[in-house]
Design a protein around this nucleic acid. Structure first.
Length: 744
RNA sequence: GCCCGGGUGGCGUAAUUGGCAGCCGCGCCUGACUUAAGAUCAGGUUCCGUAAGGAGUGUGGGUUCGACUCCCACCCCGGGCACCA
């Protein structure tokens, strides 16, 4: 037996498998379709350990499901447009497309080294005109539906990236990409009416299988609150004269507690409220009791929530009280208003914290927005037969910071005839937020080559909704929310069959550097997966990452050099099991058979639940048991190799061949079945407790009777000591597990 | 402040969902092999104690024959949201 040579084995099988082993048909006779999706990577340059965690580990599930007769789609692509790639290209003085294409080519090669079962024939690249043609087409469907609007609003402006950002892309007042302090600016931008879908985005969370942390975060982000608006008439006092003009102005406030209306002692306006500049002279009249109260401008009132004005009830609201105390406003302790009064003076309403999605970006490297500005016709759509509006090659694509995309300087490209009246007009020169690109990529995977539609309906129906979606927790209120919205909009347009794109979702954890900190070049704690693959093999790297902790829990796991060495040792021990293979059918102890069947059961259940760590632990237990045998039957070995296959696909394939386990690839073999009876060993250990403390145990035949168990337990020396001179007042029996005595 | 997670050996973790806490792996200790080191193999490894025994799953209480698991109060860590009226 040769020693385990990972590089030779992995090279050999990669070559033999080629690109065809995982080509996924849309239909496979007798096999149910299963769509396993992981968020596609950004072509940043090269693969890091996080990519391995994201793609190589779920591949275990993909392979397991295939061995269980499922027709599994496990696609891959690149989210190729966007700021980081553009910034990196600028830094190097390269064209963003050249830079991105180069990265993609290199990352493809690296991704192949994982031995992941991607169907490469379905690869999707969002910066490819054949893809973004349909991003533009879908954008236009939403535009025509009235879901896009252009409006001058206060927007988040990143001065470093020189572009507008959506609310979701600002974290702690800083740009999510570059960590620069975000400024507020008044700018005219394209927005998508995601707020029209707030209620459905909220309600439909009940119909999907997402972990509570994701549902809670999305609910929180949408921020529904039920309340009422109340209108206060405004009187303006001209202080010099007595006969002040009474302007018919009013101010509307939003409150969740209209029943505290009698406690109102002031009105507070947001600084940008239209009446804010007149405040000095304003009084407001409480409609419920005609009380005249002062009007103030207060920082704590938000201009973009509710009506931008609140009724101050210092007796019931902490911030109102604080403000009242500071400004010497009286605190009214009034009775609560009756339902009748509340109904009479207020209007029920619902408010959301969710903002519309600003999608214009003043950057070059994105999908051109397919709209034309005509003096006469205003904004018109580029005709569908003129799509795609290709991103032109320009020399100077450095962001200008003047609120316009570098495309604004592409005069020739910009000038166009109005598609409605034929007059000279100009193209929109902003590009789309990349979250638009990624809002539908998983639809394209079902029909990536389609030239007539964004995806054929029959193909989408064959795969959607996505059965299982895995990704990073950072996308909970970004991509995951956007794409749920986008899908609902497409559903309303009759373009897709489901209201929700993803049936089940889990967020994975984070791999940290060996020092327990996030990997970063400046800390010098970056683990290069390429080096680890070279040193220990892709099978070891995959399996180590699967073993590091429970997948699908958002914990963070430090990379451990000793830990990965342990997995390598395990694979070497597995390799050596070959030497125990018997040419004839070996005899097996009953114990080994029960361990074998228990393992089949446990590994299958654990993989389904994404508990790869405990599945591997079970495989190790079985390997330890097999090592103790003097010989291993071909049949048992074949069971082991098949269970190893999803985790260590190269080694399993090699062993499958050398041990002549079966014909063809182990990855086309079926998952071993277990015998439920054999998972139960014939003898059990019965634990004996006296007054709640464990005092002994004995081995007994499975299903020992209650009476037998009691009498055997009492006879145990270690137990009888504790029972002597005592009267047993109670006794408990748990079948095959335990006997418990209570003495009085 | 609000909303989610989570707190178990030196470390990553596990526990059939109320029934022997610590599976598996790392690390460490002892032994075998070796001139030696490494690799490999065998055994050990929660803490205190020579032992018998005792203590032990963030803290304090409770329910129970029995609690990592259920209930109440609190502390700490991670994440999300945040003058949201």
């Amino acid at each position: 037996m040769k020693s385990y040579n990972h590089s030779a084995i992995e090279k050999k099988w990669k070559k033999k498998w080629g690109n065809n082993l995982y080509k996924t048909p849309d239909k496979k006779k007798g096999a149910e379709n299963f769509y396993l999706l992981t968020e596609f990577p950004y072509p940043s340059g090269n693969l890091h350990v996080g990519h391995w965690y994201a793609f190589a580990v779920p591949d275990i599930l993909a392979r397991y499901l295939r061995m269980n007769g499922k027709n599994v789609l496990y696609p891959i692509g690149f989210d190729a447009f966007g700021l980081p790639a553009e910034n990196a290209a600028l830094k190097r003085g390269l064209n963003p497309r050249k830079w991105t294409d180069g990265n993609i080519a290199y990352m493809r090669k690296q991704l192949r080294s994982m031995g992941a079962s991607f169907d490469w024939s379905r690869e999707v690249v969002t910066a490819d005109p054949a893809y973004y043609r349909w991003t533009q087409w879908l954008f236009l469907q939403l535009f025509k539906r009235g879901l896009m609007y252009r409006k001058k609003t206060e927007v988040n402006w990143c001065p470093k990236d020189k572009t507008v950002l959506a609310n979701e892309q600002v974290k702690d007042g800083k740009c999510e990409r570059c960590d620069t302090e975000v400024e507020k600016k008044q700018m005219e931008q394209w927005n998508i009416k995601i707020t029209d879908y707030a209620e459905r985005l909220l309600k439909d969370l009940d119909s999907v299988d997402f972990p509570e942390e994701i549902k809670a975060a999305q609910r929180n982000w949408i921020g529904k609150s039920e309340g009422a608006t109340v209108k206060f008439q405004i009187t303006e006092h001209k202080t010099q004269t007595n006969h002040g003009t009474q302007n018919k102005k009013e101010v509307e406030v939003f409150t969740t507690r209209p029943d505290t209306l009698f406690g109102v002692s002031f009105i507070a306006l947001a600084p940008s409220h239209s009446l804010a500049k007149d405040v000095k002279n304003l009084r407001a009249i409480n409609p419920a009791n005609n009380d005249e109260v002062p009007v103030f401008v207060a920082d704590y009132v938000m201009d973009d929530y509710g009506t931008g004005a609140v009724m101050g009830v210092p007796a019931h609201d902490e911030r109102d009280r604080e403000f009242a105390l500071k400004n010497n406003i009286p605190i009214k302790n009034a009775d609560f208003a009756s339902t009748e009064i509340v109904g009479k003076f207020s209007t029920k309403t619902i408010q959301y914290k969710l903002h519309d999605w600003t999608v214009s970006r003043q950057r070059y490297w994105g999908v051109p927005i397919p709209l034309i500005k005509c003096e006469k016709c205003n904004w018109v759509a580029v005709p569908e037969n003129k799509l795609p509006v290709k991103l032109p090659e320009i020399k100077d694509y450095v962001p200008t910071g003047d609120g316009k995309s570098p495309l604004a300087k592409a005069d020739k490209w910009k000038r166009v005839k109005c598609s409605s009246c034929g007059a000279s007009a100009e193209r929109e020169t902003d590009t789309l937020d990349t979250f638009v690109d990624s809002s539908w990529y998983f639809l394209r995977y079902t029909d990536p080559k389609n030239k007539k539609e964004f995806a054929g309906r029959a193909k989408m129906d064959a795969w959607l909704p996505v059965d299982f979606y895995l990704g990073g927790a950072e996308h909970t209120t970004m991509h995951l929310l956007y794409s749920r919205f986008w899908h609902k909009a497409l559903f309303d347009l009759g373009l897709v069959a489901d209201k929700e794109p993803y049936a089940r979702r889990m967020n994975r954890g984070l791999i940290l550097g060996p020092d327990g900190h996030k990997m970063s070049k400046s800390r010098g704690n970056v683990v290069d997966p390429d080096e680890e693959v070279k040193r220990l093999g892709a099978d070891t790297v995959r399996m180590y990452l699967a073993f590091i902790g429970p997948y699908g829990e958002t914990g963070s796991y430090p990379w451990d050099k000793g830990g990965i060495a342990g997995i390598r040792r395990f694979l070497e021990r597995v390799w050596r099991l070959q030497s125990k293979l018997e040419m004839y059918e070996a005899k097996h102890t009953v114990v080994l058979q029960s361990v074998l069947h228990q393992t089949i059961k446990k590994v299958g259940e654990d993989i389904s639940a994404l508990k790869f760590n405990t599945a591997i632990s079970a495989l190790m237990v079985l390997a330890n048991a097999l090592e103790k045998e003097t010989s291993i039957s071909r049949e048992d070995f074949s069971v082991f190799v098949r269970m190893l296959a999803p985790f260590a696909p190269h080694m399993a394939e090699e062993l499958w061949g050398t041990a002549k386990c079966g014909n063809g690839s182990v990855h086309r073999a079926s998952w071993p079945a277990y015998d439920a009876q054999k998972t139960e060993s014939e003898s059990v250990t019965i634990v004996v407790q006296v007054n709640g403390k464990v005092r002994g145990s004995f081995s007994a035949a499975r299903d020992i009777s209650e009476a037998n168990a009691f009498s055997q337990a009492e006879k145990l020396p270690a137990v009888s000591v504790w029972l002597s001179d005592k009267i047993i007042s109670k006794r408990f029996f748990v079948k095959n597990k335990l006997v418990s005595f209570v003495t009085s």
